[in-house]
Write a protein that binds this DNA or RNA. Structure first.
Length: 378
RNA sequence: GGGUCGGUGGCAGAGUGGUCAAAUGCAUCAGACUGUAAAUCUGACGCCGCAAGGCUUCGGGGGUUCGACUCCCUCCCGGCCCA
């Protein structure tokens, strides 16, 4: 259950009590899409201070498959992750696999048919199946199957996706209640369920979608599709206003957000939860986030549309070949404690996975500290 | 000494009369990455130029040809075989 502890303008900090522990909001979840945060053991994730991570229904359903997960008990047991887990529904894969490449699947009003990108095998996902899987995963928070259209789709198609998302949300909620009864899950142990708000760049559609979802009733609401327009610009107004449509006592989940500055902006609009591949993926690709203590958020964070509270470096750049300084003097992650930029550069030049791993760990630590900074600011 | 194969851009290695400033890979130099089809992808990579374009290249020199990295002669260098 979600409880707001304090507020400052639209921002709030709070606490969620879940079956597998408490999570302080705002918080960031790394994406462990297929049941692991690439290259990083869960023990390290806990050490860094991550309170929850995100897994993906669609991916785990394909691999290793629910039979294996059930044999292990649930996703927590299988992964040996004891803290809260949130599962995404696979809705985003509708977006990234089907909307972007129609050959890979088909969306009908009743279901989504995927062709596995790896072996071409057909798989069917319905709102009901997505919920059942998430119960089998045993997660603490689950997400309704949605239909996220690309933001540059014509309004008419976005509106269609909104209606479908609303209908599917209704079916998800119904299935959710059915599973709660069937599995005799107590109120204290029940997973939270999130609806996802679509509507692209159209504020009125976002509003309509939110209102309809609220009628169905969820513990939290996610900002669906992407929060940046087709030019890559942050959709300031839509993201801000959409937050305001959501009831205050509900959780607000900015799915797939984002860059540090996007997260800070979202937080200032009242969003509570975030997940993104950026820290891990960009870390693996050699980009390191470094907080700028001088201009860091403490003093004026909530208003911050600027990005000068941090900088990034690309450790692949030749200039780091003989740079024996630390990536971030003020960071106590395993990378910054033990190694120089020159060494990390060498690891990347050698295509050694240790480099990618250290960089990803460092970036996650940066995100953890960013969230801590936001919480301390209220 | 004789024979033979070969010498191509930082490296490896295609090309064997015009469509070649020269494939491809590596290296190098940058860039991108937002509910992970991503240890991935993109661009640059002879010299000058923002560009159009221009200029100089395929061991050296000479030649044949309208035209040569491609053919001929010669020199230099290397591998292998024979003496």
């Amino acid at each position: 259950m979600f409880e707001i502890i304090s507020k400052n303008k639209n921002s709030r900090i709070g606490k969620i009590k879940l079956k597998n522990g408490e999570v302080n909001t705002p918080f960031f979840m790394p994406d462990a899409t297929r049941g692991f945060v690439r290259s990083i053991d869960n023990e390290i994730l806990e050490e860094i201070g991550l309170e929850a991570i995100l897994i993906n229904t669609y991916h785990l359903f394909l691999n290793p498959g629910m039979e294996i997960i059930k044999q292990a008990g649930d996703a927590h047991n299988f992964m040996n992750w004891s803290r809260p887990l949130l599962s995404d529904s696979g809705g985003y894969q509708v977006f990234s696999l089907i909307h972007k490449n129609p050959k890979l699947g088909k969306i009908t009003d009743n279901e989504v048919i995927f062709r596995s990108p790896t072996d071409g095998k057909k798989h069917i996902l319905t709102p009901e199946i997505a919920i059942q899987i998430q119960f089998d995963l045993g997660v603490d928070m689950m997400v309704c199957l949605d239909d996220p259209p690309p933001n540059d789709y014509p309004r008419e198609k976005i509106a269609q996706a909104v209606e479908r998302t609303i209908r599917w949300a209704g079916r998800c909620k119904k299935e959710y209640q059915k599973q709660i009864e069937k599995r005799k899950i107590s109120e204290a142990d029940r997973p939270l369920i999130f609806g996802v708000i679509q509507g692209g760049e159209c504020l009125d559609l976002r509003k309509h979608c939110t209102e309809e979802l609220v009628k169905i009733g969820f513990d939290g609401y996610g900002f669906g599709a992407r929060h940046i327009d087709s030019d890559g610009n942050f959709m300031e107004e839509v993201v801000r206003e959409t937050a305001s449509f959501i009831p205050e006592n509900a959780l607000r989940f900015a799915l797939g957000v984002g860059t540090p500055e996007d997260i800070v902006k979202c937080f200032s609009y009242g969003w509570d939860m975030f997940d993104c591949v950026i820290p891990t993926r960009e870390g693996r690709h050699g980009r390191l986030f470094i907080s700028n203590k001088q201009t860091q958020i403490p003093n004026n964070k909530i208003q911050i549309p600027n990005t000068n509270f941090y900088e990034t470096i690309n450790i692949n750049n030749g200039k780091y070949k003989n740079d024996f300084s630390r990536v971030d003097e003020n960071c106590d992650c395993v990378l910054c404690k033990n190694h120089t930029k020159a060494y990390l550069h060498h690891l990347f030049a050698s295509k050694e996975m240790l480099g990618m791993r250290l960089a990803a760990i460092h970036n996650l630590k940066f995100y953890v500290e960013l969230m801590r900074g936001l919480r301390n600011d209220i």
